[in-house]
Design a protein around this nucleic acid. Sequence first.
DNA 1: AATGAATGAGTTTTCATTCAT
DNA 2: AATGAATGAAAACTCATTCAT
Lengths: 199, 199, 199, 199
Amino acid sequence: MGRRRNPDRQRQILDTARRLFGSRGYHATQIADIAESLQIGHGTVYRYFSNKRDIYEQVFDEVVAQYAAALTHEAPGQANSLEEYEAQLRRISATLTALFGEGPEGLRLTLQAQTIDDAMRERFQCAMSAFSAVSAMRLQNGIAKGFLRADLDAIATADLLLSATFEAVRKTAEASDPAAAGIRYLEASIGLFIRGVRA
Amino acid sequence: MGRRRNPDRQRQILDTARRLFGSRGYHATQIADIAESLQIGHGTVYRYFSNKRDIYEQVFDEVVAQYAAALTHEAPGQANSLEEYEAQLRRISATLTALFGEGPEGLRLTLQAQTIDDAMRERFQCAMSAFSAVSAMRLQNGIAKGFLRADLDAIATADLLLSATFEAVRKTAEASDPAAAGIRYLEASIGLFIRGVRA
Amino acid sequence: MGRRRNPDRQRQILDTARRLFGSRGYHATQIADIAESLQIGHGTVYRYFSNKRDIYEQVFDEVVAQYAAALTHEAPGQANSLEEYEAQLRRISATLTALFGEGPEGLRLTLQAQTIDDAMRERFQCAMSAFSAVSAMRLQNGIAKGFLRADLDAIATADLLLSATFEAVRKTAEASDPAAAGIRYLEASIGLFIRGVRA
Amino acid sequence: MGRRRNPDRQRQILDTARRLFGSRGYHATQIADIAESLQIGHGTVYRYFSNKRDIYEQVFDEVVAQYAAALTHEAPGQANSLEEYEAQLRRISATLTALFGEGPEGLRLTLQAQTIDDAMRERFQCAMSAFSAVSAMRLQNGIAKGFLRADLDAIATADLLLSATFEAVRKTAEASDPAAAGIRYLEASIGLFIRGVRA
DNA sequence: AATGAATGAGTTTTCATTCAT
DNA sequence: AATGAATGAAAACTCATTCAT
């Protein structure tokens, strides 16, 4: 492949791929679509990536890393009261919503990992488990400190919280007025979760 | 002279397609895979369906119809107290879990509608909106009758409940011990929702 | 193939094949179309013919035989004057028109021999040459007897007469009022030929 | 980013398709045959044409346009005497013969339009009617000006002339010595027509 | 004898990938 | 380095033919 001369190009390709894979889907997006969208020759794409799957993999990794950053930025043991836990949830939601402000592609995109090959399926499962585990640790911390209810099933509840959080982000990104939708879904989810898990 | 004499074949193909489209994905599943899985020639598939997309469409419709049946079986205005609402939620969860007892394919499968073509994308959006609307009506009923909190954002909350419910079903279907997981996710979600929405 | 039990069936299949091959074309006509048109199972067709090409071959032979009968019924040396030659032409035209009264399929059908395989292409060429040769002999007879012009190129003119005769038959068969069209094309062609070839 | 950079390729494919569709027939010619004949990959064909039918359609249009140019080049009202009409016929024949000097494919090819689909069948009928109409106008002109016989059925005779003209061209193109055959068929047809139609 | 479900060889068509310019 | 023409493996789809009932 030689040296990669233009570092912007790589970035542009990843961004475009993220947008197209996310909106149309991996299989419905051709390399030529990505190239055309950037007004470059489609052969050029192969100077920066070895194949289509490679592009997907890098996009997937970036999206997952962004989720991970948003979800793990707040150390699980940090919150000492319900108020602090709520503030944590609000910060996480805000970060996710900001990340996916451009559109709902990121979330759809990761789900498609399951339709690519066994290796990607595996990586997807793994990432989701990790997110869930962090969320569960946050709940465990609250139970231990007594501000979340003692009978809470941390693991199962973490999955539910995570899925609802993603849904809130997705709906926000899809909305015609994302700012308003963001507030609405944020309040609805905080209102639901805090009442649902507090001691 | 009649067409399609063997109704079992059609059923078998739909079931196999549902399983494969759900697990490997639509694009990763070839007509030949479906045929091979049934130990029939691939030409046979075309005696029962006009093309691959036609198979997907019928599978999609069946899955959506099953969701719809589970979600709408309970009339939205039926519940008159929090206890009745909880019982409703439990029945819905039980029905969904039973439906997807065989595996988590159904849910994954419907998401893929978005990667097939614009028409399927449209149908998917439409189905999801309908489910959400029914869920929201159930919440509105509770607010009107005073057993759910007055400040509840019925529409946004309905989306969150729906997504968490699907997640619970999915996790249950995927679990190594579905029976145990079912009870666990059911209790976790009921515990979360009821506290989250009650007056 | 065993015994062919129902001789009518064979006839019906040939007639239907002639109609469909002629109107839609050989390749655009499926065995199933022929069977459906007769309200029989398409497997039944194979009790009477060994394959699709075999049906075509028999239909082709029948059509060619009918042409041949019409064109050769009148012995080439029979006519002794222009009036007798004209009467001959009229009888030939009448016979052909009667044969193809049902429709213009016959003529179109034979042309398709060229798109089936080399062997059929060969047979087609051969049949056309034979027709042309008979027509040329008729002209030679007239030249020899002095009622056709001496400078006539019998071979080339025979080809032209033949093609125009077929065109007249085709147009007649296609017309909305075949009886009227038949008279019209007959008079036009006789008017043209007789003046064109007489001494 | 532009499409179809190599205009020669498109031309080569059209020429090869014309030759093969004309000689073997549309259905007996595979895309792979066209590609192989040009020593290119069969995928390449699809860079220039969207599908097989599209190639046929373009070839058909070209052939029909060539006929049309030859037949309509001479304005129908131009001839003022039998000599001028004869000269017109000779020029038309010469043009057609020159066009189909390469071989008899063009004529056979157009006939196959009837075996492709209803739309092509329609276009074929339409083109033939137009040719016939122009030929008829030429005859009407001669009748009006008195150098063709008054009792001539212009419409019917035009069909006969057209079919015989095509036959002459076809025979010429097929002949082992096209130059000699061309003169022979030209003289035979002029000799027949002029005598057949003059006043 | 008749049937039509099943079959798979044979085509068309797509699109990721290569490579000469 | 960038390009896009060319490629061909792979997948969808068709339909003549077979054969169990």
